[in-house]
Design a protein around this nucleic acid. Sequence first.
DNA 1: CCATCTTTGTGCACGCGTTCACAAAGACAT
DNA 2: ATGTCTTTGTGAACGCGTGCACAAAGATGG
Lengths: 257, 257
Amino acid sequence: MATGRTHRPATRSRGIPEATVARLPLYLRALTGLSERSVPTVSSEELAAAAGVNSAKLRKDFSYLGSYGTRGVGYDVEYLVYQISRELGLTQDWPVVIVGIGNLGAALANYGGFASRGFRVAALIDADPAMAGKPVAGIPVQHSDDLEKIISENGVSIGVIATPAGAAQPVCDRLVAAGVTSILNFAPTVLSVPEGVDVRKVDLSIELQILAFHEQRKAGEDAAAAEAADVVAPVVRGGAAVDRKGPDGDMPAVMPA
Amino acid sequence: MATGRTHRPATRSRGIPEATVARLPLYLRALTGLSERSVPTVSSEELAAAAGVNSAKLRKDFSYLGSYGTRGVGYDVEYLVYQISRELGLTQDWPVVIVGIGNLGAALANYGGFASRGFRVAALIDADPAMAGKPVAGIPVQHSDDLEKIISENGVSIGVIATPAGAAQPVCDRLVAAGVTSILNFAPTVLSVPEGVDVRKVDLSIELQILAFHEQRKAGEDAAAAEAADVVAPVVRGGAAVDRKGPDGDMPAVMPA
DNA sequence: CCATCTTTGTGCACGCGTTCACAAAGACAT
DNA sequence: ATGTCTTTGTGAACGCGTGCACAAAGATGG
């Protein structure tokens, strides 16, 4: 994951564990799919498989929200969609600003996943005067001079930072000072924020490095194994993927997004 | 943190805890910054501040790699950069393919962070014949018919999926069958892969939903607090950020860059 | 060579998160 | 009504990750 994680240390908000909160969107997505196919109810086992998690974990997660299931039957899909949406705060409108309209910022502005769940791109902001007025994804880019005004006029509380690393902290400071209390940071920098402000980071480079670590580890093991079996058979790299195995085998390396 | 994390459950690879592996890139980035400023040594306290973590945690993390510090002095910056790079497998070249050259895929191709650390974009692949041959970020897009050939000819073991959700699983299957064993997935889907293949996911929508949850919670608390203090003072939204304080309450998450 | 001071490396305790396993609850058929 | 069968909800045990606090190690100065 994208780095996901990193933020509120261990403060369990309103009794719901942070780990559970992080999985709710996953369940919601799976449920939405079922809803579109008009499936009326679903068991914890089925839903868990669709979300790529353990069924016991799913049941415990839901138990934090309340008892929304019916024993012997399962969960009502529509009802659960509503409950989770409400719990996540998706029943209300969240205006979002994106700061830094470069390659990534523009891609984010165009990303459909934003609008799909109550998030509305209220404004695009960039420091380059040449960008001002130019429409990206149908929204005119505004100059960062007006950042404070844009935030307050639109009642924005969530900001997305897609600037170069050097500009991220200053931008973050201005966002926070203007009233933003949640930040999604794509810049490869550690942001410093006052208490009460949530920051989540997404760092492609870090994700790749983590993959590289495991990749190297696998290669090392392969080499060792190959060396041992060298006399017998040549090294086989990239064997075909046959035994498609559930995301949960023991542990799933699966992921949603 | 985007999403960061979610993947290998609890398998500690080669004795190094997964949580530690996830922080190594953070340390590496901080150290690179120090290196560029020609700082010779750094204490765990300083480096921890720069990486936004607890100093005890940092020391414990490094202890898994070996004893690379000098008591009374700290850590040698250059030496540590090398050790971490080696541990992460960044001393070798990692050819990467990006599948799905839409808005996001193109942004990723243009992203400088890729090349910066041993990752090389070996090829861009898209299913749209109209894209074939068109250069993106200086690299000609190739058609997905040639996916298997491209993977094997370039010895690619890491793939990035930036396709629409519906295409992700089929693409994933082909990548894995062709020899890819690590996947970074940007598509909003749970991928099913055979054992031995690592998948990390980055999902903007999920990150935003998690932020929305906390945002809603904060709003609720504010409302309650405001209600209580209502007679005394009006609600103040977005007070200025004065006491720059680490996100951790206890320890400062400071940052350079 | 000894004393002092700084900083690492780690033993230990604590808490969150995961998983198992089962009792309770309800649906459904007879 | 009663019994059976399915599936939830959760008590309890376990393991990983975190942070404290300190002893050991080494540098530095006299």
